[in-house]
Nucleic acid binder design. Structure first.
Lengths: 207, 207
DNA sequence: CGGCGCGTCAACCGATCGGTTGACCGCCGT
DNA sequence: ACGGCGGTCAACCGATCGGTTGACGCGCCG
């Protein structure tokens, strides 16, 4: 099987090469440190599976690169191998066409099996990632409404209830009602915690 | 020179072993995936330099492990090798006694030279980290103190003044004093705005 | 030596926030 | 047509926060 590596850390690429060198059925046909290199290399080397990090450093998002790869003619499977397990990252990666989602902290054997499974077209998730997903399924009510996200964005800017009310043309009372709902859905109990929780889940974006 | 690796990712450890295997003057005498393993291993193997990741996964902070290592009798140098370059991480690591701070994204050659420099007791910083530090120096007025950053991090977690006080073993009054200073330096006037401002300036990192 | 910045603490005040209860309206799906 | 959900508003209370003033000890640097 032909494998292509995309990771901005030389150390990680070297580690994958070293680890996978012992697996006879896996051949590493190329590496890339950023999105452009990845797309060019993959078009040229025609791998079966791409191992993709989501944090590519140069500001490029691995999710976008994944999407572009999947738009190629007869595209390879893309297996995400990254550090974090935020549900937003997982959802976005799957949405972009990723075949699986593994964590860098997983034991090497899980990685080997995951790559082989991905090559067969199977969906593969790290244990921690899988539990996260089903927890999310179980409570679909935790999705924030558009209005609540709007409130959250102003919240992140440091606005007080009064200012949020003014900017959204509603009363302070309504803002407080929304906040209580947001707290409930995010599992927090202060405005500041709500902001960080929302950022972690990529519900809102800073800057 | 005797080197010890601390990183919770098997892939990264394998990568370091592979990369450093080509350097004749560097011998890897041990590895650890978490804080406890690290302290036991280092006490037993007596390395000259420890390569330390700050994100150790099991909830343990690499900074704390670094501090403990430096409290050992005739401690090894600790060279931090991690993914991020937030001011908070850098300052806390240096404060804990780290000899240097390198980024995983740095070219291997920089890593090799860094390890050798650390063994000689020199302070070594990645280029990006160094620029960050001098930018800080140029405008000391707006630079937050280590203590203030510590407060900011708890703030970002949604902690109230009381909880911050409890966790830092100081009184609520002191926390409020710090907050006023932080507001002044960041040019904001609420706690939530302080968090977003700090994140944007990469003074702290979420998650 | 004398500042100066940092970190610590105290007491106080008004403003704001967190949380609750209860209510009304409009839209959507069964 | 009815129920459910999202969005709106109100009034209330205790808890917390924001901001101020004033104070003390410490280490660093000129």
């Amino acid at each position: 099987m032909r494998l292509f590596l995309v990771d901005d850390h030389p150390v990680v690429r070297a580690g994958l090469v070293a680890l996978l060198g012992g697996e006879d059925d896996i051949e590493i046909v190329g590496e890339a440190a950023d999105g452009g290199e990845a797309l060019r290399g993959i078009a040229a080397r025609k791998p079966d599976v791409v191992l993709m990090d989501l944090q590519l450093g140069d500001g490029v998002d691995g999710v976008e690169v994944t999407r572009r790869i999947r738009e190629l003619p007869s595209p390879p499977r893309v297996l995400v191998l990254t550090t974090y397990e935020s549900d937003a990252d997982i959802m976005r990666a799957v949405d972009a066409g990723a075949t699986g989602y593994l964590l860098k902290a997983c034991p090497p054997e899980e990685l080997f099996q995951g790559i082989r499974a991905a090559a067969r077209g199977e969906t593969v998730l790290s244990a921690k990632v899988a539990t996260r997903m089903i927890e999310r399924m179980r409570d679909p009510g935790s999705a924030l409404s558009a209005r609540e996200v709007e409130i959250l964005e102003l919240l992140a800017g440091g606005a007080g209830n009064r200012e949020i009310a003014r900017r959204l043309f509603i009363t302070e009372a309504t803002v407080k009602t929304h906040l209580v709902h947001i707290y409930g859905k995010l599992g927090v109990d202060t405005r500041t915690a709500a902001v960080t929780a929302a950022v972690e889940r990529r519900l809102i974006r800073l800057l």
